[in-house]
Every structure is written in structure tokens, then in C-alpha cells.
Design a protein around this nucleic acid. Structure first.
Lengths: 177, 177
DNA sequence: GTCTATACGGCGATAGAC
DNA sequence: GTCTATCGCCGTATAGAC
């Protein structure tokens, strides 16, 4: 059920996604939702937890690579796989943060933490590339480009825009000595 | 009234902003809203038109500068003035596009056109800088960085993040021969 | 644990007095 | 043109049968 909720929230936004939508997509009766989650917010929190877990799994895979640069490239390659979904619905995490940070929902903080953890992981990779001093700034630059590319990719409905930006970012990554 | 609607939609998002909110902020009775706008969507369209008009006014001012590079710098300087608002509510245009492109509202197209017109104006400036061939790509790069900076600035609630990115963009602008 | 029916509140939209 | 009252619908949440 959290999987259905995750996909619907990505596609329609949190406020626009109704519990009836989720129940239908998960093929359970509406009333049943409340047996597993006390409130809609509680379900959204579970979705955020799922997103956090997914990213943790991804980084655990990537961290097995010995070269930090290769790890970042792997991360970028994973993102490209979702470029069509990004063209349709934007970045699932960036979009969620953008929405939840309006009219301060209690969910804003955990959602923001998803972006923060991506920033932190990227920072660690740049540190291990010997960029101790500029690591935080480089991570910020990269994440910013990805988020900006997501916004424009969605608005202009052009998935190639995202893939081209990722290609640019990979080239940029190579220029870092 | 469109001014109140514009500000509230920026602060809370379109779906979350009720006509009662707008009526209260504009200090008119709720029923009165419908004398001026047939539907909520019609009011939102007026807000989008207002945004388009504001950008047109801005570019008319900037276009009086003879140097295209100075025009872009002026544009960036205007954005910095809103960095606090961006930290609280994100980019008013990017956020609107992000929201409206989910669950295809008829308002998505006009909202996307706001971003498109910024891209087109920037492209023209780069063309006049003698970058005919790469102008579209450069405009895309710049707009992408601004949108990405807006997303992260809002999520991390750090206005200096936006001002720093704009400073970086100005430096980058100088490097273009 | 699973499902149906429904309470309750809020929002877009309308009717109609003034 | 301006304002009040209210309709109808939908969404969250709950009650309670099975």
C-alpha cells in the first residue's frame, strides 16, 4: 500500500492524492487504510520512510565501488533511468519538499531530510575524492543542477533535457582533478 | 484581489489556497469573488497573467540597457531581492509549474509559458552577446541553476544559498567571452 | 482483521436579498 | 454591484457489522 501511495503522491502531489485514490490503487477498501495508518499524514510519513530506505539501499550498493567518482557516476546513472517519470511528474523528492514546505506541514522536516541525506552522501564522495575543502560546495552544485533540471524537464515535458544535464554533470565530474 | 491571490498561491500553493483565504486577505466577502471571476481556475489564470505582465515590465526596463550581459545581471539582481521569500516559499513560478504539472490542470500550459518566456528572453540576451550557437543551451543552464537553487534554498531554508548561487552565476557570466 | 456505511467538516459555487 | 446564506460535493476519519 505504501508503494501505491508513493507512486500516486509522486504523480499527483500529496494534497491532491486522496485516501480513496490510494485504496483503489492498492485494491483495498477505503476503511481498511485506517487499520494500518491512523491518519493520512502517518501514511505519508511511511512513504517518506520508504524513500529514505530506498536511498539507503542505493548508497549501500554504490559504496561497494572503490572509486568515489564512480559512485557518483553510478548515482547519476540511476537517476537517468527515471528521466521519463521526471518529465511527467518531476523529481519525487524535490517536488515533495516544494509542496510540503508551503504552509508548514509537520511532514516538511522529514521530507527535507531526504534531500539533506543526498547532499550529505554526495559531500562524502567529494571528500573522498580529495576535495575536503570544497566538498560541500561541489555537492550543493551537483544537487542544485539535478533539481533545476528536474523542474525544467517537467515544465517543458522533455526527458532528454534531464539526460543531457546528467551527461553534462558527468563531464563536469571528470574535469575535477 | 489578484495581488492577494498571487501572494497566497505563492505561499501556500494553488490547491491549498482557498477562495475564502483570498477573500479574507483582499478584505472582500467570499461571494463577491465570483462577481469578478467565474471560477477558481479563472482567478488563477488572472494571477498567471499578472506574473507574465510583471516579467514583461521587468524586461522592458532591462532592455533599455545597451549591454546584454548587463541586462542579465540586472535580471539576477532582481531575483536576489526576493531571496527571503524564496527561502520561505520557493520560486513563485517554478513552484507553480511543479504543482500544476501534476494531474494535468488546464492551467499547466500557461504556467509553463511563464518559465518559457524567461528562457526565451535569456536566450535572446546570449544571442546578442555573440553566442548565437550556444545561446539556447546557456539560457537553459542559467535557468536550471536558478530553479535548482530555489528548490534547495526552500528545502534548507537558507536564503544565503540562493544569493551565493546568483553570485556564482554572475561570475560564470563574466567568464563568457 | 476485513469491509460497509456514514458522520463531520470544508470548499467551490450559487441564489437571492439589498 | 455588494453581501449573506446556503447548497452540493468530496475528503478525512470513525462506527460497527461480520
Amino acid at each position: 500500500m505504501t508503494a501505491a501511495a508513493r507512486d500516486l503522491i509522486h504523480a499527483m502531489g500529496y494534497a491532491q492524492t486522496t485516501l480513496a485514490d490510494i485504496a483503489r490503487a492498492a485494491d483495498v477498501p477505503l476503511g481498511n487504510v485506517y487499520y494500518y495508518y491512523k491518519t493520512k499524514d502517518a501514511l505519508a510519513q511511511a512513504v517518506i520512510d520508504t524513500r529514505a530506505e530506498e536511498f539507503k539501499q542505493l548508497t549501500q550498493e554504490l559504496d561497494r565501488l572503490s572509486d568515489p567518482r564512480a559512485r557518483i557516476e553510478g548515482y547519476l546513472s540511476m537517476l537517468v533511468l527515471d528521466s521519463e517519470a521526471i518529465a511527467r511528474h518531476g523529481c519525487p523528492i524535490g517536488g515533495l519538499c516544494t509542496e510540503l514546505n508551503k504552509s508548514d506541514s509537520p511532514l516538511a522536516k522529514p521530507a527535507n531530510a531526504l534531500l539533506r541525506s543526498q547532499l550529505d552522501w554526495l559531500t562524502r564522495q567529494f571528500q573522498q575524492m580529495g576535495k575536503a575543502e570544497e566538498a560541500a560546495e561541489l555537492a550543493l552544485q551537483l544537487l542544485m543542477q539535478l533539481q533545476g533540471a528536474s523542474v525544467l524537464t517537467q515544465a517543458f515535458k522533455d526527458a532528454t533535457l534531464f539526460t543531457r544535464q546528467v551527461a553534462n554533470s558527468k563531464l563536469w565530474l571528470q574535469t575535477l582533478t
